[in-house]
Design a binder for these strands. Structure first.
Lengths: 203, 203, 203, 203
DNA sequence: AATGAATGAGCATTCATTCAT
DNA sequence: AATGAATGAATGCTCATTCAT
């Protein structure tokens, strides 16, 4: 038997509600990976069939795990949001509040250049309605970063989190349409960062 | 200006390749207007049938004028680009180079909030490949605005046009995903403008 | 002749709302015929694809004429109901009220044996909710037949139309499941008719 | 009765071909019960998965016991037929032949209104081909009821069992499509019974 | 040149049946 | 023997594109 479920150990914190058979878990993972890749490359209009093919499973299997295409998309978003929020919290927990926000901003824009999913996720973070928990967590993590940066004097005190999110969303969206030569991306970010810093900020 | 259509001169150089019968020309115009409205409201996924209906022509007529949906979209982009470029040139020709760029930037973001087409157009302006003339014209007009603003001391001298375009594209894209409360839009633009101004910029 | 539509003569009582091109009208007819045959043979679960094939048209054409499978089914029901109601009215207008109801009953059961559609239609006539006009017309026509038959003394005066409908529906449904040898059908109808006649009715 | 399973005799002649392990037998029973309930409520188009769930077994177990959905349906029919036949025989064995047939008829129609399975079963009883033994038993039991009723003078002597079956089937089918207000059902049955009674039938 | 009917590939989703665990 | 995950053919429906009228 593959799953020795002797005790209902409460540490089963990750994954779906019920324990899955080993093969089902493997397929679920493959589907998520395939979906992340396909959605990242082609956006949410990519066909479920293509995802199934890339995952090497039948179309029925995809729908067994995710009863609608919508739910699959949400799961991907969820995962990406969790990852981003974690990265953000890690940055917030690190030493330098003055640079954490800028680092996060830069990293996220870089990721967006490669993953449409990140772009789409942030797009959802822009609409303050019907947002799932992980998206909210991301928003809150950004708010923390902004607050810390302000306390450290790295960001003007009259800046608020929503416009930071707006700028972040915008540059990530732009990634869908701009061939970011590294220097161009750097110069664009420099403008935004300069705009965020106090007017008297040293070079 | 090439298109004063007083006489049915067969060599009309603007517009489609060959001269069109008067009714054909009228249909072409109606289709473009309908497509601009529909794409502006629903984005590029709107159905061609809907456009034909709004234009009051048969679907076949749409495809006679534009052999693919793609080509219709491009034509719309073309038209919007022409209009934007003209507005931009008008601004450049006006009196105050110090504010012209910011005015243009603000106006365009506002338009984007209402017209998906503007967003899509700018998206294309971000890809330096396969750009049609009107899009290039827009890029150049923006370059002029940036140059003038720099000469007027309103924009840092190390800023270049591409990052201004990138920021513009990004904020327009963001319009698709953010509910721009007017103050939020203003504060977001303020950050960008602060980033563009010289560090020691006067008020 | 397809359509000599010189004047908007108001007698265009049959067919869809707008005049159709000759080919479209032809296809519409073929689809209806195919659908009637297929539904009659296999019931409402028959696939739309099969109907399209039998009609010799693409699947898209079926959906252009009938935007949902449901609507196609309704159209068939409508047509059958109209036909049945007309037959019924014709019988009612004829000379002998004493036999008209029995004739109608017999004929309908015979038709049901060949056409599932008739069975399904009558099934709908049994549910007094959300019935379309032609179905109501059929119910009313049957009520007339019953009333006339009672006035002629051919049917007991305490019988009401609903149970006549119920018996009709039942025997039509039975046709789906019984191999009606002609004598069996006749004997079964004889029982029902005997039950409808006054107790003192002459043999 | 052959199936007293005191000992695991390997040659048990009734039920499935071979003797089953105790738990398999239990599962078989649960599946049949679940299927009867689900089919009774939703008709034969109910999904096999739902039946498995209601039975508390895996879908695979259902297919192990019944290799096709069709075979499961037949088994249900079998069971219902056995029950109905027994009820019928019990009525025949009772005291009053004059009313037994009518009682049976009334009861069955009432059951049909609640159990689609009864309707479907009788539908099969109408086709004299490929009838399983229990269905035949039911037909024979009805024949007995009819014969007794005729001997008692409650039913005309020229009536034969097949038309009684046809009427029974029809009214049960009608139950699927008619909202049987109790009075309507009573009046409908009254017509049929009047048709079955001798013309000069006393009271 | 205009029309709009016809086409058919493509999509999301369901479900009877099979098979690895 | 039991499980339930996997399968994939089939269905209703959409829409860009073609073509007869």
């Amino acid at each position: 038997m593959p799953n020795d479920q002797r005790v209902p150990e409460p540490d089963a914190s990750a994954g779906p509600v019920r324990a899955l058979r080993a093969d089902a878990q493997r397929n679920r993972t493959r589907i998520l990976e395939a979906a992340e890749a396909v959605f990242a490359a082609k956006g949410p209009s990519a066909s479920t069939e293509e995802i199934a093919q890339k995952a090497g499973v039948g179309i029925g299997t995809v729908f067994r795990h995710f009863p609608t295409k919508e739910s699959l998309l949400k799961a991907i978003m969820h995962a990406v949001a969790v990852r981003l929020a974690e990265e953000t919290r890690a940055l917030a927990a690190q030493g330098d509040p003055a640079t954490a926000l800028f680092t996060f901003f830069t990293r996220t824009v870089e990721q967006a250049a490669e993953q449409k999913t990140v772009v789409d996720l942030l797009a959802q973070a822009g609409i303050p309605v019907t947002v799932a928990k992980p998206v909210l967590a991301l928003r809150e993590a950004v708010e923390v970063l902004v607050g810390r940066a302000q306390q450290a004097g790295a960001v003007r005190s009259d800046v608020r989190a929503p416009e930071v999110m707006a700028l972040l969303i915008g540059l990530c969206q732009a990634s869908l349409h701009i061939r970011w030569e590294p220097e161009l991306r750097a110069r664009t970010l420099a403008v935004v960062f300069a705009g965020l810093r106090p007017a008297t900020a040293p070079g």
